[in-house]
Nucleic acid binder design. Structure first.
Lengths: 150, 150
DNA sequence: ATATAAAAAGACAAAACTGTCTTATTTCTT
DNA sequence: AAGAAATAAGACAGTTTTGTCTTTTTATAT
């Protein structure tokens, strides 16, 4: 697994929120965790973290819930990954060396840099809303499809 | 971190063994873990696992230790990664979906497949001995260099 | 044979990750 | 003002990963 479970749930929740929420349609945590098939309280913690980082909006009280405003829907997914799993995840040396660099490369440095830069590039140009398009259209999925649907 | 600590230590130990051991020069676990700066007993467990998978050779008793024969030095590093971290690591869906595929892709499926296939390809063509060349020559490193050396 | 040096194996412990439960706080509606 | 519905926060528990310590087994040399 490249990403942590936290990060997987974060991405799924954001896509679900992007499709189903807006400034005046808020989703509560029960709805969200049921929809993306994630543990409720754990997901709640993750969303709280994203709220603190202004990736997600929330409001308490009756009629409240989590939602994304239009600006938040355009946040690149890489930003979320960096917040949840740390910028190191996709930048770090494959052998865990702190001082690995092009000047002092580990034996797999070049392969790693080449491919991780590509992946970072791809993820930095995909916003939450872009990733949501296919899901909204039904061509991409964020939960496992049942046999009958396959 | 893409690889587990176990896997990082495994790769480092193998490169160290590739350079410094052969059928009649064996290294004991103290020498190995000191050289690659890894926890001794943990490294010992990892090497035992690799011995069971015939990636590493070992002999007990006085003058014994761990070593690689020539055939073992030519094993692709991907094989080691698959054993230690599981084949899933570089094949699995970025969102953790069990049924993610080109027919039922998650929103980041294409980016991930492209990236992981390239990385797997690169790692499947690099043997332990190939990775060791630069380390033996001093152009690549498996432990952090001290400031003075930088 | 005995001592020694080594890997192998097993039990345990600490830390990180994942997940659950309970309580507090806020906001809306009546 | 009170009640209800929601997030926020904190304490706790299970699991996996990482790391340590001790004992057992094996092989070698004396």
């Amino acid at each position: 697994m490249i990403f942590s479970k936290k990060c997987e749930y974060a991405i799924k929740a954001l896509i679900h929120l992007c499709i189903n929420s807006d400034t005046d349609t808020r989703l509560n945590i029960t709805e969200i965790s049921d929809s993306i098939e994630s543990p409720m309280h754990f997901t709640s913690k993750i969303l709280q973290e994203l709220v603190r980082h202004k990736i997600v909006s929330s409001s308490k009280g009756l009629g409240g819930g989590f939602f994304l405003n239009n600006q938040q829907k355009n946040i690149p997914i890489l930003e979320v990954i960096d917040i949840i799993d740390g910028k190191e995840l996709l930048s770090q040396c494959g052998l865990g060396l702190k001082k690995c660099s092009s000047k002092n490369p580990c034996p797999i440095h070049n392969e790693f840099v080449k491919y991780s830069e590509q992946l970072k590039q791809a993820l930095s140009t995909k916003s939450i809303s872009v990733l949501s398009l296919g899901v909204a259209k039904g061509t991409n999925f964020i939960i496992n499809q049942k046999e009958e649907i396959l």
